[in-house]
Measured scan of single mutants.
Amino acid sequence: MAEQVALSRTQVCGILREELFQGDAFHQSDTHIFIIMGASGDLAKKKIYPTIWWLFRDGLLPENTFIVGYARSRLTVADIRKQSEPFFKATPEEKLKLEDFFARNSYVAGQYDDAASYQRLNSHMNALHLGSQANRLFYLALPPTVYEAVTKNIHESCMSQIGWNRIIVEKPFGRDLQSSDRLSNHISSLFREDQIYRIDHYLGKEMVQNLMVLRFANRIFGPIWNRDNIACVILTFKEPFGTEGRGGYFDEFGIIRDVMQNHLLQMLCLVAMEKPASTNSDDVRDEKVKVLKCISEVQANNVVLGQYVGNPDGEGEATKGYLDDPTVPRGSTTATFAAVVLYVENERWDGVPFILRCGKALNERKAEVRLQFHDVAGDIFHQQCKRNELVIRVQPNEAVYTKMMTKKPGMFFNPEESELDLTYGNRYKNVKLPDAYERLILDVFCGSQMHFVRSDELREAWRIFTPLLHQIELEKPKPIPYIYGSRGPTEADELMKRVGFQYEGTYKWVNP
């Protein structure tokens, strides 16, 4: 592979701008107003304001973009700056750019259920340069409990009458099928589907988006991507930290609602779906819905739930269990780990287990898709061969690698495990991989909904998990304890083995 010439960040961002501006969906010269509902909250200060700053800094926003914060707290732009700027990672050389960014910011205080507050917000936006005809993007960085009041008031008082209007809704989209349907029906009564952007930030990850290209742009994968060759698929999300004093919020939802029903299920769809007619948003989402419709409700015998306990040999936070978090209700049975087996009941995947695993306070930070292939028929190497695996590593250190057998150097035919490896950090030294939120917010500006969740996708996802969630809430089974920093409950490994996964433990990928 030829040595790549190092590029400056300015040059890299210039390439990104060229890609972005050559499309006809990006209205570079139009006025846009980006409204952050819930501007005083954690999500706004840690993710949304920093993301908008990065896009502005790199010249990736339309030229005439204004940012308006809205929340109940009586704040000023200076207050917003004070709480969000520490997350910007701005350099001293960017000081003038930073001043320009905050000059485009404003803030309006108001209630979430008060019509007069929204009329005041609308008047404020109209007073901005060309504000009355601007395109408006409303980001709901809010708890779902206020979605209905907020969307109703936005629709009645704050819509642009000339430009387009788009609304970005953060997960969780309800707690179960019934609450999700209620919320979807409410929002759909106010906005068209092409105006609604239900954001799952995992769909903005580079390697998640790469799944489609790997599958449908490489001839070698087509013939082997089926039940005849693939023994099982494992989708993993692991965090090495616990709730760390923020367990009160987590306890309301648990690990299945927080990660599995959305992030992991979306990745499953991209692995299992048929080739779409095109890369058009609805063509892709149509195929994802077909996959979900082929999955039956989760069966309790295919589920393992766990909850982390303190590690007596650990240090600091590792010595504390979930129930030691003062914000967690006493005696909570909320799971911090889950392993679930699903089956896609169609011709391509009949009988292939899709194993979804996620948890907190585990032994490493990792998100990946792992396809394990069947054993080689007619073994001539005296059971020395391990199964081939194709691994798409989402985070950290984005990579695609194939675990395969090669001859060990020497005189004899002794096979050993090795890999074919594409590590993004080595291959793409001159490429700026956008943060997931950067990519998705740019998608909203461009009107691309491919990486957002459609209402029928959402409904099918909740259909699969709601009976299990209701059973857990009714019966309150005690989750299996696992030690902070471990791989999780051993019962999860036993479940995976029972459905056909072979864990060798003899080879570990190392970032080159």
Rank of each mutant, 00 (worst) to 15 (best):
Q4W: 10
V5M: 06
V5Y: 07
A6C: 08
A6F: 08
Q11W: 06
Q11I: 07
V12K: 10
V12F: 13
G14Q: 11
G14T: 07
I15E: 08
L16Y: 06
R17N: 09
E18W: 08
E18F: 04
L20I: 04
L20S: 10
F21E: 05
F21D: 07
Q22E: 11
G23S: 15
D24H: 09
D24Y: 15
D24C: 08
A25W: 10
A25P: 09
A25S: 13
F26W: 07
H27Y: 09
Q28W: 12
Q28A: 06
D30R: 07
T31S: 08
T31P: 12
T31C: 13
T31H: 10
H32Y: 15
H32Q: 08
I33T: 06
I33D: 03
I33G: 02
F34A: 08
I35T: 06
M37N: 00
A39G: 05
A39I: 03
A39W: 00
A39Q: 00
S40P: 03
G41C: 11
G41F: 05
G41A: 10
D42C: 10
D42H: 14
A44K: 00
K45D: 01
K46D: 02
K46N: 07
K46Y: 10
K46Q: 12
K46F: 11
I48S: 00
P50R: 05
P50G: 02
I52G: 00
W54E: 14
W54K: 09
W54L: 11
L55C: 10
L55M: 15
F56T: 02
R57W: 00
D58E: 10
D58L: 10
L61K: 00
E63R: 13
E63Y: 15
T65R: 00
T65M: 10
F66T: 10
F66V: 06
F66H: 09
F66D: 05
F66M: 03
I67C: 04
I67K: 00
G69D: 02
G69V: 00
Y70G: 01
Y70T: 05
Y70M: 09
A71I: 01
A71N: 04
R72H: 14
R72D: 11
S73M: 08
S73T: 06
L75T: 07
L75I: 14
T76V: 05
V77P: 07
V77W: 04
A78W: 10
D79N: 07
D79G: 04
I80M: 06
I80V: 06
I80Y: 04
I80W: 11
R81K: 09
K82V: 08
Q83M: 06
Q83D: 10
S84L: 08
E85I: 08
E85G: 06
P86L: 05
F87W: 11
F88K: 01
F88D: 01
K89D: 11
A90T: 12
A90D: 02
T91E: 06
T91I: 05
P92I: 11
E93K: 13
E94S: 04
K95T: 06
K95M: 14
L96A: 07
K97V: 04
K97T: 07
L98S: 03
L98I: 05
E99A: 05
D100K: 10
F102N: 01
A103P: 02
A103C: 05
A103F: 05
R104H: 07
N105D: 00
N105M: 11
S106W: 04
Y107P: 01
Y107D: 00
V108W: 03
A109Q: 12
G110D: 00
Y112W: 05
Y112R: 03
D114Y: 05
D114N: 08
A115E: 08
A116K: 06
A116D: 10
S117T: 05
Y118W: 09
Y118A: 05
Q119Y: 13
L121W: 00
L121M: 06
S123D: 13
S123W: 10
H124T: 06
H124D: 04
M125N: 03
N126R: 09
N126F: 03
N126L: 12
A127F: 09
A127V: 09
A127P: 02
L128F: 08
H129D: 08
H129L: 09
H129R: 10
L130K: 05
G131K: 06
S132V: 11
A134C: 13
N135M: 05
F138M: 01
F138R: 00
Y139F: 09
Y139H: 10
L140F: 06
L140E: 00
A141S: 10
A141V: 04
L142T: 07
P143R: 05
P143Y: 04
T145E: 07
T145N: 07
Y147V: 15
Y147R: 15
E148V: 11
E148G: 13
E148K: 15
A149R: 14
A149I: 11
A149N: 08
T151C: 06
T151M: 03
T151P: 08
T151D: 01
K152D: 12
I154W: 00
I154E: 00
H155C: 06
S157C: 12
C158T: 11
C158I: 02
Q161V: 13
Q161R: 02
I162P: 14
I162H: 10
G163A: 06
W164T: 04
N165W: 00
N165H: 07
N165V: 05
R166I: 03
R166Q: 00
I168E: 00
V169D: 01
V169H: 12
K171Q: 11
K171W: 06
P172A: 09
F173T: 04
F173Q: 07
F173C: 02
G174C: 08
G174I: 08
R175I: 10
R175Y: 14
D176W: 04
D176A: 04
L177M: 12
L177V: 09
Q178N: 11
S179N: 08
D181Q: 06
R182D: 11
S184A: 09
N185F: 07
H186Y: 09
H186R: 07
H186F: 11
I187E: 07
S188D: 04
S189C: 04
S189P: 10
L190C: 08
R192F: 09
E193F: 02
D194V: 04
Y197K: 00
Y197R: 00
R198F: 02
R198C: 03
D200H: 10
D200L: 13
H201Y: 10
H201M: 07
L203W: 15
G204C: 15
G204Q: 15
E206K: 04
E206Y: 04
M207N: 11
V208Q: 15
V208C: 15
V208R: 00
L211V: 11
M212I: 05
M212G: 02
V213L: 05
V213I: 05
V213E: 14
V213T: 15
L214T: 15
R215M: 02
F216L: 01
A217C: 05
R219H: 10
I220K: 04
I220P: 02
G222C: 09
G222P: 06
I224S: 12
I224M: 12
I224Y: 03
N226I: 01
N226R: 08
N226P: 00
N229C: 07
N229L: 02
N229Y: 04
N229W: 02
I230P: 01
A231S: 13
A231R: 10
A231I: 03
A231C: 08
A231W: 01
V233D: 04
I234A: 13
I234D: 13
I234G: 07
L235C: 14
T236Y: 03
F237D: 04
F237Y: 14
K238M: 15
K238W: 14
E239C: 10
P240H: 07
P240T: 15
G242M: 10
E244K: 09
G245W: 06
G245M: 08
R246K: 15
R246I: 14
G247Y: 14
G248S: 13
Y249R: 15
F250N: 04
F250Q: 04
F250R: 03
E252S: 07
E252T: 12
F253I: 12
G254H: 03
G254V: 00
I255A: 14
I255D: 02
I256S: 01
R257D: 03
R257C: 11
R257S: 12
